[in-house]
Amino acid sequence: MKGFVSAGIERVFPPFNAYKADTEANKARFEDFLLVPVSEDVNNIYCFDDAIGIDTGYLFAFNCSRATAEKIIERLALRSDTVYFDHPYKVIYEFEWWDEERVGNLSEYNWSDGQSYRFYWYDEENQKSYYYTFSM
């Protein structure tokens, strides 16, 4: 019975691991949120959730090829501009894997429906992606 309860809780509150890369939970969340499979070029997946309260926020950082980055941009219907916020990369969470200064100097891709927001940055030099999504 214990496994059944754990599985039920995980469906409502899926696990994220902000302190250990490439956990099975992080790989599953990667696919859930970024809508592409974890391919051979994807690694160092870190993710964090703040899903308590009426607003939610999720952060992801991972390494991938430019081809995978382009698939993510396409699947999430992101566009290259800075319409929504002056500095959306200034998140309130602090993690070693989220380089806020670096993110602020990268080209941004985003999408919004007015209540949900998606932001994506790809660091070509380091083949590193940053993804931040939240709702209000």
Rank of each mutant, 00 (worst) to 15 (best):
D55G: 05
H87K: 12
F119K: 02
I45G: 02
L76P: 01
A67R: 10
A21I: 13
E31K: 02
A51T: 10
N105R: 11
F30T: 03
R75T: 09
T56K: 13
T56E: 14
I54G: 15
K27F: 05
P14Y: 13
K128R: 11
A21N: 06
A25P: 00
Q127C: 06
K90C: 10
K90V: 04
Y131N: 04
Y89V: 04
S6M: 14
M136K: 09
D123A: 03
G57T: 07
R66P: 05
Y122D: 01
G114D: 08
W111D: 02
S65H: 06
E24Q: 11
S6R: 14
F16M: 03
I45W: 03
W111A: 07
A61H: 00
F30Y: 04
G57D: 09
F62W: 00
P37F: 06
M136S: 13
D113N: 15
Y120A: 04
A7I: 06
V91F: 05
L59I: 05
W121I: 01
Q115N: 15
Y131V: 06
S116I: 15
F30L: 00
C47T: 04
F4L: 14
G57N: 07
N17M: 08
C47N: 01
A61N: 01
N17P: 10
E31G: 05
W111Y: 09
G8N: 14
T82Y: 08
R79M: 12
N44K: 06
S135T: 10
Y19R: 09
I92R: 05
R66F: 11
V83A: 13
Y89M: 05
E96Y: 14
V12C: 04
I92P: 01
D49M: 09
K20A: 11
E31M: 03
V5W: 10
V5M: 11
D49L: 07
D81E: 13
T56I: 07
V36N: 01
D81M: 07
T68G: 06
E100I: 06
R11Q: 13
N110V: 10
P88S: 01
D123F: 06
Y131E: 02
A77R: 09
R79A: 14
S107N: 11
S129I: 00
W121E: 00
A18M: 08
I92G: 09
H87A: 10
G104M: 10
A51P: 05
G57C: 07
F119H: 07
V91H: 04
D113A: 14
G57F: 04
N110M: 13
K2L: 14
D50K: 14
E74D: 10
F16I: 02
F16K: 02
E125H: 05
K2Y: 15
T68A: 10
A51H: 09
V42P: 00
S135N: 12
E96K: 12
P88Q: 03
V5I: 15
P37E: 02
V42M: 00
Y131R: 00
A51Q: 09
D49A: 08
A25V: 13
E94F: 15
N126A: 15
L76W: 05
Y109R: 00
S65K: 01
W121G: 00
F13W: 11
F95I: 04
F85M: 09
E24G: 08
Y132N: 03
K27D: 03
E70H: 08
G8M: 15
T23W: 07
V5Q: 09
